[in-house]
Design a protein around this nucleic acid. Sequence first.
DNA 1: CCCGATGTTGCGTGGCGTGCAACGACAAGT
DNA 2: ACTTGTCGTTGCACGCCACGCAACATCGGG
Lengths: 248, 248
Amino acid sequence: MSQSLDRALTVLAALAEGRRTLDELAATVGVHKTTVLRLLRTLETHRFVHRDDIRHYRLGTALFDLANRALDDRDVRRCAEPALRALNERTGHTVHLASYEGGEVVYIDKYESTHQVRMYSRVGKRAPLHCTAVAKVLVAAFESSRRREIAESVQYTAMTENTITTPEAYLAELAAVADRGWALDDSEHEDFIHCVAAPIRGARGEVLAAASVSVPKVLLDHDGLLALVPDLLTATEQASHACGWARG
Amino acid sequence: MSQSLDRALTVLAALAEGRRTLDELAATVGVHKTTVLRLLRTLETHRFVHRDDIRHYRLGTALFDLANRALDDRDVRRCAEPALRALNERTGHTVHLASYEGGEVVYIDKYESTHQVRMYSRVGKRAPLHCTAVAKVLVAAFESSRRREIAESVQYTAMTENTITTPEAYLAELAAVADRGWALDDSEHEDFIHCVAAPIRGARGEVLAAASVSVPKVLLDHDGLLALVPDLLTATEQASHACGWARG
DNA sequence: CCCGATGTTGCGTGGCGTGCAACGACAAGT
DNA sequence: ACTTGTCGTTGCACGCCACGCAACATCGGG
């Protein structure tokens, strides 16, 4: 563990919240401001931070560059794009693409709703495992031993009345998801939003990612949401083909 | 300048090219592999890198998170979104949003073309100052002394036959752009693509960002491109209003 | 079974990152 | 205008910690 690097990354995390001054940063990281200054200088030469004001620092453009270049490398993202974009245009609702990596589910793409009501999410954000449709789809793709392992380690924070709060209920849900081929988030994450999600498969049939449609309950009731499932499955199958999946 | 941090950032830059092994990284950075290992460990605990394979490292999810959170903070991006999205849907062509920061022009948003022919670009990518329409718009927004200063420091790399290659020609072009309120890239960056761009203004009339429409020449000839200008200006004016611009 | 390549660990050295204190720059208050 | 306070910046000396080395672990291929 490199101390200075560790501190620099903490600085970046602090800057993610918004622009900060030198000793605001020094305070949050808990080191002398001189130290932060030097770290910032190095970060600045690499364009990781940028000072717009004489005394305010901000995240720099190198971050955008790196992140989006890395995202660009993901084949799923590129291959699934036309299908998901079409789904988004057809339904008008928010479409997410998420993948499982390193024990967490992360959004790797997003297509905004055309409606006024927007949901809060962001590419790069991590999705809770127990109360999102995409996570259910992705975890349900594992064999049962792995599922059980994950189910044990999840923090079952109750986000709404409907949130699943026990490993047993979660495992049962996963089995159901695996069985029917798509997942439902019945306002388990946020009270006013419900979602459906389905897997996108690669050449060997493995699950590469999950796509979801999220819709505010004021726009569509439960049955209305379920009516989107065929549309969703059409899109994910189309995306799966684009990713090399052979079987229809 | 912090040595270890400097090396760590170089490692990240190397990883941006794609997944790498430990001593590939050690070689490119030019240090002992032990050193790289320890840097990677620190980076890994902060989710900046992720090892998908036992011997391959990749950029991690924290980068996406940071970058997109930072992008989210940009008011322009959010405010301009509906107008640009509409422009993109109306024309079917690639729409870019770019802003000037720290001496460089960087793409902060992108709306993909619906046509088969796509252009290569990416959010976070830096746009050359002398041969892109967005850069012309942004630089033309400065007062003449600043323009001259910038014009002197630009590297006039000739990308195509039409690329502007002298400070004098560049300054003349900037004056024309400032005068008519929009800019043209007549295949000055890439042979087969031409673009038009216009500024998006904030509450005090200052230029916040530039929006552009890029279209392959096989789809639209010069006159066809110019015919898009009214559409573009409608969109940028709409976006400007959303950003607080009062005057129509 | 050996051998090469690559990731990992222990360890001693000294470079370098650290905190301190003093200084500079700027703004606000009196 | 002087003072006062705040914040960024610089010089410096100490000692920690990051470094490279070498040995070990692990895995695959011949």
